[in-house]
Amino acid sequence: MKEYTYTEKKDTRSGFGAGLSELGKTNPNVVALCADLTGSLKMDAFQKAHPDRFFQVGIAEANMMGIAAGLTIGGKIPFTGTFANFSTGRVYDQIRQSIAYSDKNVKIAASHAGLTLGEDGATHQILEDIGLMKMLPNMVVINPCDYNQTKAATIAVAKYHGPVYLRFGRPSVPNFTPADQEFVIGKAVLLQEGSDVTIVATGHLVWKALEAAKSLHEKGISAEVINIHTIKPLDEEAILKSVAKTRCVVSAEEHQRHGGLGDSIAQLLARKHPAPQEYVAVNDSFGESGTPDELMKKYGLDTVNIIEATEAVLKRK
């Protein structure tokens, strides 16, 4: 079994900030927009280094999405920055018409996604954003798992032409993926090989899936762990190959059960390789105020929940 370690915990939003700063130096067409959350999005370094390429739009997210679409006409590669809630639900029609349908090369950088935003509570804890974005034709949806991967993803999406939703978060989480990794959009990462169950995780749940696999190993259960950083387009080949071997799946995500990664997996399996599946996801509920750890426990998104889901799905094989 492969051992994963980390030297420090870091927030994924800082990975975005670092990636954006690097793009600022390497690609003069990259521009950034922010709706009054520059510090929260870690966009300050880019703003300071490239004031002419940074647009503070104020608390006006709909306008921000439209301006971003317009900036692409003239060859710019705009990154919009605000919380995931205000990056999706609040501006859905603007994204749909002016960006996705219009095939504009806009990168929607969405921080503070999910429950781990914490104390601000349910008004700000969007758990529907993956579903909203993956339903849009032409939209790529990415949810990296740690600082290094978020930085790599930020740099990778600038090289891809087309609209991208890049989702990340606020809390510090183990930074365990290699700093020099190559980020390939749509290519899943096999983290742990196993034969009894396939655990497919995205975002903050990836580390928890590795922890669960370790515990399961001690119980004599061999779990395969796949990091799905790109929810759309889904790496169908990687999932089907694994399920052909394990014949059951646990999906894990910081999102509603309806419409998230789990549903993408379920749809794939229903079409190509029916197999039992258990979800680790929020069960049709809003969040609430609390610390990130408390919330992940209360809403069933912790390591223990992945272990329980695995035990449940094994009984259905």
């Binding site: 439209g66 301006i67 679409a69 317009g70 692409t72 006409i73 603007q94 018409q97």
Partner: peptide, 11 residues
């Protein structure tokens, strides 16, 4: 939506 897009193109 068009005014926002036009502003982006102008920028």
């Amino acid at each position: 939506q068009g005014m926002s897009v036009a502003i982006g193109a102008a920028l």
